[in-house]
Structures are given as C-alpha cells and as structure tokens.
Design a protein around this nucleic acid. Structure first.
Length: 845
RNA sequence: GCCGGCAUGGCGGAAUGGUAGACGCACCGGACUUAAAAUCCGUUGGGACCUAGUCCUGUGGGGGUUCGAGUCCCCCUGCCGGUACCA
C-alpha cells in the first residue's frame, strides 16, 4: 500500500522468520535431569510468570510487561550458562469463561480452547523463549487429575499440633478423623452470590460484592467443603521471613492472616451454667471490664436472654442478620441491646451486664468480648452511647494524656494485684494468674478463616468424593481424573444446588453412592502449576522427584499485586502441605517475587474500555514490531513502578533499533538492505572499546538487578558512540548484538546472521545460544580523568590530570588554580579534602 | 484510622554520600532535499548580569548530621495502593 508508512527496518519480515525458526528447531527446549543431553554441570534458573487466564479480550499491554522481564532474564541466564526453566500455561477454569459461555450459548471448553489459541499466537508473536513443550492447561484432564490428587492429599491428612505439620490421617489417634482433615465439610455461614449462583471465598468478596462482576453477596448458612488453612496460619506468617519478596506484599499477607497475641478469659454467667469465653489482646485491663458484648448471632444469646429482653433481642438479631458486613461497617453510631443477663468478672466478682451488638462479629475470636470502655475506642463509644460505666485501669505515661479512651501502653491502676505494673508486665502476670486459676489461657488468634473451597458451578474440577449414607469418602487414586459430565445445560440452578446435579447418570456413582456435586474454585489449578512445569508430562506423579528437586524453588516469580493475598497465600499453603507429607523438598515455592507496576493509559488514568485509553499490543507489534514493544515496556521506567503509556516513547525505542540496524545495514535505491561497506574487521578505537566494555558491564549488572530501563539507556549510549564512526569494527558490533539479544531477540539474531555471512570468523550459531560476553576491566579506565575542584562544596573549576594522580599532587594544583584563588581570597584555608580520581574540596572561611 | 509505597526539568525517568538531570520524549536551531518525511549534527532546569563568559538558584516543605546530602537521621505536607468496628 502506498499510504503505508515506510518501515525503518524490515521487522515485519525478520520477526516471523525467527519465531518460526525457534519453534521448528525447539531452540528453547529445556531438558530435565535424566534426559539425553542434559548438562548437570550448569547452574539452574527458574523464571516464572503468573500464567494468564485466557480471556476473550486477548492480551493487554500489562501482560508483556512482566513476561518481557522474565524473558530477558531467562535469555540472559541462558547465555550466561544456566539451565533455564521458563514455561507458560493457562489458568483456564473459572467464572468468566462460564459467564461468557452462558451468555453466548457456547460450551466453555469451546470458548476456552479458542481463547488459548489466540493467546498462544499473541505470545508467540512477541518472541518469548518459552519451552512450549511444557505448556500446562488447568482444564486438561491430564492436569486436573493431579489437582484432584492433591485434594485427596489434603483430605487424607491432618496437622499434628505437636509438630505443626501435616501427616497422614491414618496416624490420627482420635476417633473422629473427619473433624481434623485438612479438607473437611462444615456448616458455615458463607458468602452466597445469587447473581453468580455460587458461594465465594472471603478473599473473593470485596466491599460486600463479588470480586468477579461486582454482584451483591449475602451471608447464608450452607454445608461446604473447607480447607483448614488456619492450621498453617503461624507458618504462613513466620516463613515469610525467609523469602525475598517486596515488603508490601509480605505486609499484606501478614495483615490478612492477622496474627494477634492475647488471652482467652472465661466469664461465668450469673444464674446460669454456661460460660462466656472472650479473646482479648489486653488481658491486663480485665479489672476495667464493665460490660460484655456478644455478637448478635452468638449461640449463647438465646439461652441467656431474660424474658423481659427477649423481644428486643430477637428484633435486634433479625435486624443485624439482614445487614451485610458492609452495612455494619459504615454505621455511624454503635447499636446494641441488653440481654438481661449478667456475667461475673473473675478478678473481682463484679456483676457486669451482657449486651449484644453488631460491632462484635462472630467470625473473629470467640464472637464475644469483654468491654473495657476506658481503654478501647469502640467500647468507649458504645459505653457513652448507652451510658455504661467507664473505669480507668491504665495510667498513660505522659501526664497530659487523657486516660479516657487511651489505648496505648501505660501503668496498671485500680487493678488489684496488677497495680503499678507496666502494661507488658501486667499482661504476663494476669495471664499466669488466669492459667493458674483455670479461668483462661494465653492465646494467639488469627483473622484468617478456613478456606471455603466449593463452588456451585460447572466449569471447574469435580471433587474426587462420593457420598454414601450421608457420609463422604474419597475415590481411589485409580479413578482419577474424575471428568465433569458432558452437560448441554450448565447454567447455575439459581439455588444452592450445583448444576452438576442435572447430570443424573453421572451423579449416580453406585446403587448406594452419589458423587459430590460441587466443583473446586479457580484457585485450585493455580496452586501448583509451577510444580507441574518441572515435569509436565509425568503420568505417574504430579511432579517427578528428580525434576522437582532440580528445579525448585522458583528463582524469580513476576506478576501483578492483585494476587498478593489470594493465589500467593493459597499456593504457599498447598506447597507446605505437600512438603510436610514428603512430596516436595522445599517449604516455600517462590524464592523471589517481583510485582510489575501497572501500565496506565496515555492520559495517566487506569486503562479501561470506558475511558477509551486501552492500548492493544497487537497494534503496536503491527506498526513497530515485537522488539520495539518489548524494548519500550522495559524502557518506560523501573519494572515495579506504575507508569503511563507513551506511543511517542515506542517510536523512540523503535528509532533506536533502526539506528542499531543501520550500524550494520544500508538501503540501496531499490529499498533493499545490504551489509554496510563501513563494517571492517579492524580493532575498535580506545574510546569505542571503553564504551563497549562499559556497556557489557552495565547491561549484565542491570539484567541481574532487573533494572532494564538503565540497561537499555546504556545500549543507546553504545549505539550513539558507533553511529558517528567512519569505520565500524565488526568484533565490537558483534559483541553489542549479544547484549541486545535478550531485549530485542529478533533484530539481534538477524543482524548477527547477516554479519557472519560476510565475517565467518565470528562464532557460529544462534545468538541466543552463544555465551554472554565478558568485560575487561582494563578497558574501562581512562588515561586521563577530570577532577572537580570545589571551594566549600561548590564546583569552581575542573582540571584534567593523568589517571592515578596522587592527592599530594592534586592539592597544590587545585590551590594554584586562578578560579580557586579568586574564591578563597581573603579566607583562610582550613582543610582540603581530596578524593583521588574525583575531586578536591577546599574548605576555607 | 492503620499498613505499604512514592515525591527530581514541559514529560517518562537517571544518579556506590562526591560535577543533579544519564537515556528517551517534546521543543528549538542547523545539515541534506525543489520541498516534505526520514536521517545526521547541535541547543534546551530556572534566573541575573558586564552574555566567547561569570554568578545566583534548584531534587514536595522545615530542621539536623557531614568538608560535601536527591541520597543518611528527625518532623511536616501531598499523592498512589491496600485494609478497616479484628477485640
């Protein structure tokens, strides 16, 4: 087309050609230990991307950001002599596929396959060095067979409190094994989303709405499969210490797990046999407890409520049951009702009223609190509202701090045997006292709840479980995988009954047994995919022992922050269980985690269809080529930083690649590119050699540090240096191509091949497979250096001296400079600081 | 409120405690061209003056440490992300 913009270099011919060659030759095939040709002498590197959910929208520009980063490091490590594992796959079960299928009337398998095909083509067009022989797909029966198998490991194990580790359920000494399994069935109040027709995990509910779609979520009691992740709460926090993750993500997980140390205290109820147990982080304030509060849904409420209060209590219970957690949270004033009952404070036998209020939640601690209004903000507010007594028991250390509502540490007062003790001491003493009297105990409490693991959906892994006589049991491993039934109508039923119930024949397992109807949540498949990559074709085991030992841990995991508390927590949990059971050799899966920053639209706003600021990576590849897209996304700024898109910026890096291309190539009048006659097999000039070796050094170091933006800047400096040269030394330019290769693999391979055609003395082979160049420190030093001369810290002059000039020579030289003399005229020189090779600072006053 | 992060030219950003602004974008000037595009070369933080130069000023604000601070310490402000009655 005549209107088509003239290409600065023929990327559109180059890129498909190299992609085809890499694919045909399986250039990036990675061998496992034991395979022919495997080189055990090399170190290993496992670079992992968060595998995508293959949505119908295709890749957005955020995908190639993280993927290019791991691709560069993988290519760099490969050239540096590592065995590199760099795989890709599909997280393809899940709600969006099913929603889309229902909307369009197509089977989710059909749309999923089509989307995967599209994603694959898009990724291949970007030139990533994935070993496609290791591709995994969570919806493949050969994959989810092992997801089901891992579920059975959870089902068939328990955590021994003595060791804190999972072990086979057969070792459980108690009578009721079902009460300790890591996968268990419980009646729980769950997040039911009528619109999606399924229950959701706490983590999938955001502000009372479903994370997917933003539909209202209600609380309702249901029988559900749960995973006992709370048994791992302690280790999920403490073992974060050993991994190299961003502090923010660690903090997010710690906060989500929500560990707090305190004590449980039992209060007798006056005139009743039951006891109310509370959790408190401030047992030292026990003397200040002037009332108690139960969550409205607390099981003791009905039993202790007095006849006079019953109507009010029941009305309040009904009212708060209708409120979502969100409504409870935004309530501006506290509400509550007196039950008519009184509890007895164990430290002083004081009778204190028992209330119910929705500021206490059943889901945390014991669902009951002792209220110490003097030293708790919420209790303080409640007590003022309902005119309950406020009793000081902590004296703030600062005299001008009001004790009312003071929540910090201080000194115990009005607290009997605790008086005078600092808060920390008082906590210890009261805990010991409670334990001695059998009234309470030290306790660590967590916010983390068990993981609700069942979904009432079609497009997920069926459970390898059948029900018989009202009891569940595991299917034998030999019956895996349990395939989902082929359902034409897989719509949610609109009731909590899962759509699998419609497959009547499938449901009937035997005359007396029926299959579990729920499916697993989308997180199941992504909890262990990084393990399967190590050995994706293994039919006998979820991952071969030797492969797992060799490749794990993941050395670098790059992905978005959105998975900070979902995927990353669940995957760590499963990993630890499998580790405890002896199936794995590491306790943590991801040694180093890096979050790529969000790419904003050109307007600095988050990209969204409604804003119309979405950039389609395909369009960029079409106009500038994959190498330009890769390079630009890395050049925008630090990987972890949020940064706006700039199409001008893409043009900038595209020009850089074209400039690099023209170092080697010239275009004749017909528009054909031939090797430049300026190329010659001559030694580089000293300056060129220096810049080249600086570039080798900087690009290598920046690759290791994931500082890709500065590596690219240095490569630009290098190209600029050679652009002005009349004669272009082939050896130096070939070396440069090695440095460029991980970043812009297509154009660098092309140029190397063309260069070698005329200069066969260059090493034979693909640039991708030839070793990374080494820099020589002796080329980095200049004969002369510029010394900055400062007077009182301000630059006044500069002088060029031979490299290595000693301080003893520099000082008098500096003091003798005309400009220095002007600036120290009338002053006394007090001191001269000399940093050889850098500066002289004259201190005078 | 709490937790985490960030703050540098017109813009994206760069700077082991040692010449702030590398590199790119944008802008401006020049070369090439009939012309334009492309390309190549060059200028560009702000300000002042006696304008081949010299000086002042400058990394959100205020203090401090240091011969020397964008960088280290303390306080404050603003923005972004997460989380929120968690007892």
């Amino acid at each position: 087309m005549s209107s088509e913009k003239r290409k600065q270099y023929p990327f559109d011919e180059i890129e498909p050609r190299w992609q085809a060659r890499w694919e045909n030759e399986k250039t990036f095939r990675t061998l496992n230990p034991g395979e022919a040709g495997f080189d055990a002498s090399r170190p290993k590197f496992y670079a992992l991307d968060m595998f995508p959910y293959p949505s119908g929208d295709g890749l957005h520009v955020g995908h190639p950001e993280g993927y290019t980063a791991t691709d560069i490091i993988s290519r760099f490590k490969r050239k540096a002599g590592f065995n590199v594992l760099h795989p890709m796959g599909w997280d393809a079960f899940g709600l969006p596929a099913e929603q889309y299928a229902i909307k369009t009337g197509q089977h989710p398998r059909t749309t999923t396959e089509r989307n995967i095909k599209n994603f694959t083509e898009q990724l291949k067009r970007l030139g990533f060095c994935y070993d496609w022989d290791r591709e995994v797909n969570t919806t493949d029966p050969g994959y989810f067979k092992w997801t089901q198998w891992i579920f059975l490991q959870l089902y068939n194990s328990w955590v021994n409190p003595a060791t804190g580790k999972a072990q086979p359920i057969s070792t459980y000494p108690g009578a009721d094994a079902d009460s300790v399994r890591l996968a268990y069935v419980a009646d729980a109040t769950v997040n039911w989303c009528p619109e999606l027709g399924t229950v959701l995990a706490n983590e999938e509910v955001v502000d009372g709405k479903s994370e997917v779609g933003g539909f209202p979520v209600e609380r309702r009691p249901m029988r559900q499969w749960m995973l006992r992740i709370t048994d791992y709460a302690e280790r999920l926090i403490s073992e974060l210490d050993g991994v190299n993750w961003p502090e923010g993500i660690k903090a997010l997980q710690r906060n989500w797990i929500g560990r707090s140390e305190g004590a449980e205290v039992s209060f007798a109820i006056a005139g009743a046999a039951e006891k109310i147990t509370v959790f408190t982080t401030r047992p030292d304030t026990l003397f200040g407890a002037t009332y108690m509060v139960l969550a409205p849904e607390h099981p003791l409420v009905a039993g202790i409520t007095s006849a006079e209060q019953r109507a009010a209590v029941e009305a309040y219970q009904k009212e708060s049951a209708a409120k979502s957690d969100l409504d409870r949270g935004v309530a501006k004033t506290k509400s509550g009702v007196f039950t008519g009952a009184h509890a007895v404070n164990p430290v002083n036998d004081a009778k204190i009223p028992v209330w119910i209020a929705d500021y206490v939640m059943m889901g945390y601690g014991t669902g009951a609190i002792m209220a110490v209004p003097a030293h708790d903000e919420r209790d303080f507010e409640f007590a003022k509202q309902f005119d309950l007594p406020i009793l000081q028991v902590v004296q703030p250390s600062s005299a001008d701090t009001d004790w009312q509502g003071f929540c910090g540490d201080g000194t115990a007062v009005h607290s009997g045997f605790l008086d005078g003790l600092p808060t920390a001491e008082a906590k210890k003493k009261i805990a010991a006292w409670l334990e001695e009297k059998g009234l309470g105990a030290r306790r660590v409490n967590f916010k983390l709840r068990d993981w609700l693991f069942a979904r009432q959906r079609y497009w997920g892994e069926p459970f390898p479980i059948v029900w018989e006589n009202g009891k569940h049991r595991a299917l034998p491993e030999s019956e895996l995988p349990v395939l989902p039934p082929d359902l034409a109508d897989f719509k949610p039923t609109g009731t909590p009954e899962p759509p699998l119930a419609k497959a009547v024949d499938w449901v009937r397992y035997s005359d007396t047994a029926t299959r579990e109807l729920n499916t697993m949540p989308q997180w199941a498949g992504s909890c262990w995919y990084y393990l399967r990559y190590c050995d994706p074709k293994n039919a006998a085991r979820f991952v071969g022992t030797e492969a797992e030992q060799y490749w794990m841990n993941v050395d670098l995991y790059v992905g978005g922050t959105e998975h900070a508390v979902l995927h990353l927590l669940y995957a760590r949990f499963w990993h630890k269980v499998l580790f405890d059971l002896g199936h794995l050799t590491t306790g943590e899966p991801f040694q180093r985690l890096v979050n790529q920053g969000l790419i904003l639209g050109e307007d600095g706003q988050k990209m969204s269809k409604s804003r119309g600021n979405v950039i389609n990576p395909d369009a960029i590849v079409g106009e500038y080529g994959a190498d330009s897209l890769r390079l630009f996304e890395m050049f925008m700024g630090p990987l972890e930083q949020v940064k706006p898109w700039s199409t001008k910026g893409v043009e900038g890096v595209h020009r850089f690649l074209a400039r690099a291309w023209r170092l080697f190539m010239v275009e004749d009048q017909e528009g054909a590119w031939t090797l430049s006659p300026q190329l010659a097999d001559v030694p580089p000039q000293k300056k060129q050699l220096k810049v080249l070796h600086e570039t080798i050094k900087k690009v290598g170091e920046d690759c290791e540090a994931l500082s890709f933006n500065t590596a690219i800047a240095q490569m630009m400096v290098c190209v600029n240096e050679f652009t002005g040269a009349e004669v272009r030394p082939v050896s130096a330019l070939a070396t440069f191509l090695h440095l460029l290769n991980p970043y812009a693999p297509h154009v660098s391979e092309e140029l190397y091949e063309r260069l070698r055609a005329k200069f066969p003395q260059l090493p034979e082979g693909l640039l991708s497979e030839l070793p990374w160049p080494e820099f020589d420190a002796k080329n980095l030093v200049d004969d002369e250096v510029e010394i900055v001369i400062q007077v009182n810290g301000k630059v006044r002059d500069k002088v060029t001296v031979p490299n290595g000039t000693a301080a003893a020579t520099l000082e008098p030289m500096a003091l003798d400079r005309e400009k220095v003399k002007e600036h120290i005229a009338g002053l006394t020189v007090r001191k001269v600081i000399t940093v050889p090779g850098r500066l002289v600072n004259i201190v005078a006053n």
